[in-house]
């Protein structure tokens, strides 16, 4: 099939990213590292949430996984095949079961095409089924995402709202029955009431089609709601990975705690659980990232060692990984006064 070798993967692992580095050239011959040495895996049927603030490299990471940006080094093994070693044609083949949806639902759909055609396109490109079968399946998929193909299939994207356009891009991404769907900030451009509709829809479709999701967002509450496991990213590196329950119950990285603390809770009677653990200042320039732990310039717990040694991701509890020299645990993390 392809020239690339097959890689050993745990049987239920669908995607494994190993030491991925992505650099972009910037002016004066300098290079900026958008992603530096990220490793993680996604299992069959699992939702992995990837959370971080703007500029942390989460969208670059997603694009590097689907090879929209070619990684500088490292490997991306999807279903046993290292995507970084494939040429264009092989990549197209391998990517069939790896689909992606984007933040801006309206601009990611070709404005000149009718919705039914947009959704049908993947089947036509791959030559799957007869034209009438293709149309049938397109209608069915549109129905699944809550869009009536008979009523609105012949409209064009601009005639739909943002939420509906996101449904259409989801329908299109599902046409080839992907095993992994990468969602890059799929709800952050939507209104609160519409956001809930799309999140529920993604949950339903995931269950029905047995796919895995890589769900990228800046909103920790949204990510927690949809994910089985959550990875927190800061300035191109992973800080912490854990099951969503334990990440929220026992966050160990000061940055995770800071993020949790900063979420506005719609409940005046709720006590801020991480009071006094606020993150200071703002994101340093990715062009000139801090030495050692990249978070040390904003960390309320930073020690001298943090500015010199880079902490590696290590397991502090089963399935709970953190990249911090002084992880917060138990009472400490919850900041009981």
């Amino acid at each position: 099939m392809s020239a690339a070798e097959t890689y050993q993967q745990a049987p239920d692992t669908i995607l494994s990213v190993e030491d991925l580095v992505l650099e972009f050239p910037v002016r004066d011959g300098k290079r900026v590292r958008a992603v530096s040495g990220v490793s993680f895996a996604i299992h069959e049927g699992e939702t992995l949430g990837l959370v971080g603030e703007s500029g942390c490299g989460k969208s670059s990471l997603a694009r590097a996984i689907v090879q929209l940006y070619r990684p500088t080094s490292g490997s991306v093994v999807f279903e046993g095949v290292d995507l970084t070693r494939l040429n264009g044609k092989e990549l197209k083949q391998a990517r069939r079961q790896l689909q992606m949806i984007f933040q801006d639902p309206i601009s990611s759909l070709n404005p000149r095409k009718r919705v039914i055609e947009l959704v049908r396109d993947p089947l036509r490109i791959w030559g799957i089924g007869s034209p009438s079968e293709q149309l049938d399946r397109s209608r069915q998929r549109l129905g699944e995402v809550g869009i009536d193909a008979d009523e609105s299939g012949s409209r064009r994207p601009h005639q739909f709202s943002g939420g509906q356009c996101q449904r259409i891009s989801i329908a299109r991404a599902l046409m080839l029955e992907p095993r992994l769907l990468i969602c890059d900030e799929p709800v952050s451009a939507l209104d609160v009431s519409v956001q809930a509709q799309v999140l529920n829809l993604l949950e339903d479709l995931k269950r029905r089609h047995g796919m895995a999701l890589l769900f990228i967002a800046h909103d920790l509450a949204v990510v927690k709601n949809i994910s089985d496991r959550v990875a927190v990213m800061y300035l191109g590196r992973l800080c912490e990975i854990a099951s969503s329950e334990s990440l929220y119950r026992e966050p160990a990285h000061p940055y995770t705690v800071g993020l949790l603390q900063a979420i506005p809770v719609p409940d005046p009677s709720a006590r801020q659980p991480f009071e006094g653990r606020k993150v200071r200042g703002e994101l340093p320039s990715p062009l000139d990232p801090p030495s050692g732990c990249r978070f040390h310039t904003r960390c309320p717990f930073a020690q001298p060692r943090c500015s010199s040694d880079t902490p590696e991701l290590r397991e502090i509890a089963p399935g709970h990984f953190v990249a911090c020299h002084f992880p917060l645990t138990g009472v400490h993390a919850n900041g009981a006064a």
Partner: peptide
Amino acid sequence: SVPRIDNPPHSRL
């Protein structure tokens, strides 16, 4: 309709 941080994962919104 707002996902809340203290909801268990996969709660229906």
